[in-house]
Design a binder for these strands. Structure first.
Lengths: 210, 210
DNA sequence: CCGAAAATCAATCAATCGATTGATACACGA
DNA sequence: TCGTGTATCAATCGATTGATTGATTTTCGG
């Protein structure tokens, strides 16, 4: 079916192992073994380990671009109530994607590892294609919901605060689960996190029903 | 002066390099070189690379234990206004520590790397000595400020949301700085982040002056 | 000044790393 | 039945990894 099954298997395996212990910790042999192919396939398809890293970044960017569709009601200026509704829906989507979507955990872990690396060769790619446009869109919505200017420092930091919470629930999953007495992130746990984050969102925006 | 200068230099260098690219990415040779000593000093002082890892975790735990002193006004049940004041002070302290304190950046990066690692050998140590007691204290304060029971699921998640924001501003520093147009985290930037986080705290707690 | 313990050194070990090689299997048009 | 390009394979390369060794230097009580 797929035109490049080995290529995709390699990306998937690499994304998982890169996300686990970092880029350097993952060996090409282990990646190839998990993908069910030979080591030299990496060089053949991607030119090397670094090429595989870039391919992972592109795969994430493409996937997110598909999931995070053009937000309805962003082209025109939505009224505050509508903006708040869209923000709530987005928070639901983000948390669901990060917590419960199968395979997304690996992608999130991979991205976070790259973001934390001071001189990651794919950081630029991830920022321009993944971080900035989404952050801008969220700022626009936040602006519409609160009336503050979209590119104000306060708004940008507020949006970072919001997504930072979701990111933390993923990156610190072992700790959160242990403290909460959870054995994993499943539907019930995702619901609890979503509820808390929606509460935070409403209160941070203010003015509404809290 | 110091009874173990080489030991301390090794821990400091290791913490930095472990935090940069992860545990496996850091080579013992590079660590020893940065510490200005020989490779075999690692084996002599810590038994090996893993021992150095544990020593780093202990060093962080001890340092945080010193910085995060017993919170004043926690033994008795503070009234809501006092609790909110203590929470605000703690948020200031956390952000300052994470953003601006020299050397703390390495420690934070190291801890986060360990927390993200699924099967880190020092995760247990870090959790029991570092995460849990602080989280419990924050939950108690949150409870006193809001009236909710301290060990309620909602309270625990709220505290995680709060610290998650601060953690994110550190772990995603390259992204945040780029989006904000900042060249680094200095006093002015830390102040902006602190202000936003205090606003978030006030609104999340609710009931107060916002 | 001496001798033992503490600490550091250069040198080397087997193991593993990413990359490369030449051979091989397969599909497809001439 | 060729010839060609794609894709994977086992085998091997030099380099680097963490660990270890034995010698050397430093420290300090007697």
């Amino acid at each position: 079916m797929d035109p490049h099954p080995t290529r995709i298997a390699l990306i998937q395996a690499a994304m998982q192992q890169f996300g686990r212990g970092g880029f350097e910790a993952a060996s090409t042999r282990a990646i190839a073994a998990q993908a069910g192919t030979n080591i030299s396939s990496i060089a053949y398809h991607f030119g090397g380990k670094d090429g595989l890293r870039i391919a992972c970044a592109d795969a994430v960017a493409e996937r997110v671009a598909q999931v995070a569709r053009p937000l309805p009601g962003l082209q025109d200026r939505p009224d505050p109530r509508h903006a708040r509704l869209l923000l709530r829906r987005l928070v639901r989507r983000i948390v669901t994607f990060m917590i419960v979507t199968p395979g997304a955990s690996d992608a999130v872990a991979f991205v976070l590892r790259e973001l934390a690396e001071p001189d990651s060769p794919v950081l630029d790619r991830l920022y321009t294609t993944l971080v900035e446009p989404r952050h801008r869109a969220l700022c626009a919505l936040w602006s519409a919901a609160t009336g503050e200017p979209a590119e104000a420092e306060e708004v940008k930091l507020a949006v970072f605060s919001l997504v930072g919470q979701a990111v933390y629930f993923r990156v610190a999953a072992p700790i959160v689960q242990r403290r909460m007495g959870w054995r994993h992130y499943a539907r019930a746990e995702a619901r609890a996190i979503t509820r808390r984050m929606l509460t935070n969102l409403d209160r941070m925006i203010g003015g509404g029903d809290g």
